[in-house]
Nucleic acid binder design. Structure first.
Lengths: 232, 232
DNA sequence: TTCATAGTTCGATGATAGCCGAAGCATTGG
DNA sequence: CCAATGCTTCGGCTATCATCGAACTATGAA
């Protein structure tokens, strides 16, 4: 009865270091080629190919052929959500990968979590939104208030009525692994991050696979004006 | 390379079928003993012990010693959340799994835990005793109040002064197998159960090895009068 | 005390699965 | 056509790890 492939099947897919490296590389939301993923995982293309077909069979990633290349991306935000959840558990247990690079502080400050803002600034933003009563945080769900809708329209030119999605909530609390607190996910979180990019307040790091988000000087100011934490 | 939580470490823990069976068994919120988890996973106790220590080291479960038993539970709702997320991904990929059948309802309602009452009624009894201030529940210990002593003498003809025992506390909170909450153990718990039997309010099931406790109709009424939870 | 039960540790075994070298398709460009 | 690139398949090697038998510790019961 329990021999069937269940959550162990999926978890074992993520449980291999090479595969988990590929998956975390895909958490930026961008699609990467098989070779790039192989390099990301530190393995040969042959081995990577085997891993990628397994991940595809497990429904975690999906391919898109483009000429000689084969681009892979996560099949959906829910996959990224589970990965982020696993990262949270790992962080809580103190199982960090010890390789600390120069990008580490930047990664903690602001990074992409699939398609929305995470890190210190992401947590700060949600905190501020709660303080300003732009969102109402219930036990599980987060809800946008009327004031929040006005705020989004006036300050960020985001039409919140167009954010409804059949398989994804507008607001969602996503556990931040570095801060161990929640930041804002969902279609609103994604839309806000996209707006930040459009406004040239912030941009993803150019390095391929990097999840770091760099804020411009003016972007940081505007962001602080809207979502500052009131500290000196 | 990259810095970050080692999600492969956590995922590989869940990735083993035996361990994932244990974890899903714990997702009900109940705490289970090592043997029960072994049976749930269909493995020997030796193997289960190895798995359990790994899960504990990974911060996914935590033990609670209770006499000869060792109860394990998930360390928090976030663990259950990640497991649920993984189950969602597995379901989406078409990897469904057959759920295990429900346990004996009578066993859940009332049973013997060593020598005292456990199950729904056992938990209900301790709850009611707290509400009526018959006992004072501290962080770890439970203490009988003066009012509690009077109650025991008048309503159940139990001389609480004679319950002292060199190696056993009078009152003790015991984690309930099915309710995942505490019921009353200790010499008082044993004395109360013995009294219920004497008064023919309840009797142990005749089937050998059965832990089920059957309440008589009048016994149930009297019990409810003393320890009813106020519901209709 | 002696016995029984719950759980752990140790050691050996066996199967799974990651890994890479070499060769095989497929696509693009000349 | 041929050559180069991106990726996959095949075969064999190796290491990891789940598994269980046996022995050991600890708690409770008689």
């Amino acid at each position: 009865m329990k021999a069937g492939p269940d959550i162990a099947m999926i978890a074992s897919l993520v449980g291999d270091p090479a595969r988990s490296n590929m998956l975390t590389a895909l958490m930026t939301g961008r699609a990467l080629t098989a070779s790039e993923l192989a390099q990301e995982a530190g393995i040969t293309p042959q081995t990577a190919s085997s891993h990628l077909s397994k991940l595809e069979a497990g429904g975690l990633i999906e391919p898109e052929k483009q000429g000689r290349h084969r681009y892979y991306r996560l099949t959906g935000p829910d996959v990224a959500g589970v990965l982020e959840g696993l990262a949270g558990l790992a962080a809580r247990a103190g199982h960090m990968r010890v390789r600390t690079g120069p990008k580490d502080p930047a990664l903690r400050r602001a990074r992409i979590c699939y398609d929305h803002l995470a890190g210190d600034l992401g947590v700060q933003m949600l905190d501020s939104m709660k303080r300003q009563k732009l969102v109402r945080a219930g036990k599980q769900a987060i809800e946008l208030t009327g004031e929040g809708k006005r705020f989004m329209a006036e300050s960020l030119q985001i039409d919140t009525d167009s954010l409804s999605h059949p398989r994804r909530p507008v607001c969602k609390a996503c556990l931040d692994w570095s801060e161990r607190r929640h930041h804002l996910a969902g279609t609103l979180g994604a839309a806000m991050m996209a707006r930040f990019t459009e406004l040239k307040w912030a941009a993803r790091d150019e390095a391929p696979g990097s999840r770091v988000v760099n804020f411009t000087r003016t972007g940081e100011k505007r962001f602080a004006a809207l979502f500052g934490n009131g500290e000196a």
